[in-house]
């Protein structure tokens, strides 16, 4: 096998006729999306999530009544006018369920996103640096990991009482980032010793770029997985905190619905829909996010998708 070496000077003098722009980064996004979509479970999850999001967005159009509209018959069973019955305060349960989806999904996505961003920033830099800095981060992360989550949440929520949705998001983010940071750090450490990272050093790359352009894309599945996990945890934590009465109980969300249903002894009066409907919605939303996670696995490993030799 021989290699023909054109004289370099000639190559410079006669530039290649057509030099197109480099391929667009949007291709990557399209590739990721099609990968997730190609997984059957993830497709079900995406459809479920899309339905929830659409219902939440169009709640004002779909809901038969306003969320806080009272004055109906109190504690009524399901009927043609009120499909899921009414609450003890005389509100329509179906309308509350639809409006409640807004809060649950909003809190889930925002809190999940924020705690993932913190986990990525801390986890990746923690994994890449060595020495004293790493020890300090290690101490802080371990501190958050050993403190039991729910009591910490309750203490912080009680301390910040009356903050409403914003407060709940802050509480969920503070208590939720540490585990993700730890997982991302160990993956960073194993990727750091790979040849392509050393090669990036040889290419003259700065540490910041190595961490976020070379290492981070290889952890896409972990990060996206971490996001959906954190969002699921946030939805559950939000419902839990509000169920305990630690949130703003005047806001209509699935958690406060459960809180009021419990307060009015809905089960004893046979109004199972009051507990069952928001509970099932929380479970289905969490399930949809978990299903999407199955499809996310294929993103950062192209070999999982395309059969290649060796």
């Amino acid at each position: 096998m021989t290699t023909s070496l054109p004289p370099t000077t000639a190559a410079i003098r006669a530039p290649l006729s057509t030099i197109d722009a480099a391929p667009s980064p949007w291709k990557v996004v399209v590739r990721v999306a099609s990968t997730v979509w190609s997984n059957g479970k993830a497709r079900i999850g995406l459809v479920m999530l899309a339905v929830f999001i659409l219902l939440a967005i169009f709640a004002p159009l779909i809901a038969p009544y306003g969320a806080r509209e009272t004055g109906f018959e109190r504690s009524a069973d399901g009927s043609a006018a009120h499909w899921l019955g009414t609450t003890a305060a005389g509100e329509d349960v179906l309308s509350q369920l639809l409006y409640g989806a807004q809060i649950s999904i909003f809190v889930g996505l925002v809190a999940g996103l924020l705690s993932t961003i913190i986990a990525v920033l801390i986890g990746l830099s923690w994994g890449y640096v060595r020495g004293f800095g790493a020890d300090v981060i290690n101490f802080v992360v371990n501190l958050f990991l050993v403190i039991p989550g729910l009591p910490l949440m309750i203490v912080i929520a009680a301390y910040l009482s009356g903050g409403g949705i914003g407060m709940i998001i802050v509480v969920v983010v503070i208590t939720g980032w540490a585990w993700g940071a730890r997982v991302l750090r160990s993956q960073t450490q194993s990727l750091r010793s790979r040849d392509f990272v050393t090669a990036a050093v040889f290419s003259g790359e700065r540490p910041f770029r190595i961490v976020f352009r070379e290492i981070l894309p290889n952890m896409t599945s972990l990060i996206v997985g971490n996001f959906f996990g954190a969002a699921t945890a946030a939805i559950l934590a939000e419902a839990g905190l509000e169920f305990l009465g630690l949130g703003d109980s005047t806001v209509v969300s699935w958690g406060t619905m459960l809180f009021w249903a419990q307060n009015s002894n809905a089960l004893l009066t046979g109004q199972w829909a009051l507990l069952f409907a928001p509970g099932l919605c929380i479970a289905l939303l969490a399930t949809s996010l978990t299903l999407i996670n199955f499809g996310v696995d294929g993103i950062s490993n192209p070999r999982l998708r395309e059969g290649t030799k060796k």
Binding site: D195, F196, G204, E214, P217, N301
Partner: peptide, 29 residues
């Protein structure tokens, strides 16, 4: 140093970032 001293790695399967195109790998240096 790396402007003048460069390295060719043993394992071509791990020396290229699997998620970057050839173009990206060459454009950076």
């Amino acid at each position: 140093l790396h402007r003048d001293v460069q390295m060719v790695f043993q394992d071509p399967y791990s020396a290229l970032n699997p998620l970057h195109t050839v173009e990206y790998a060459l454009t950076r240096p």
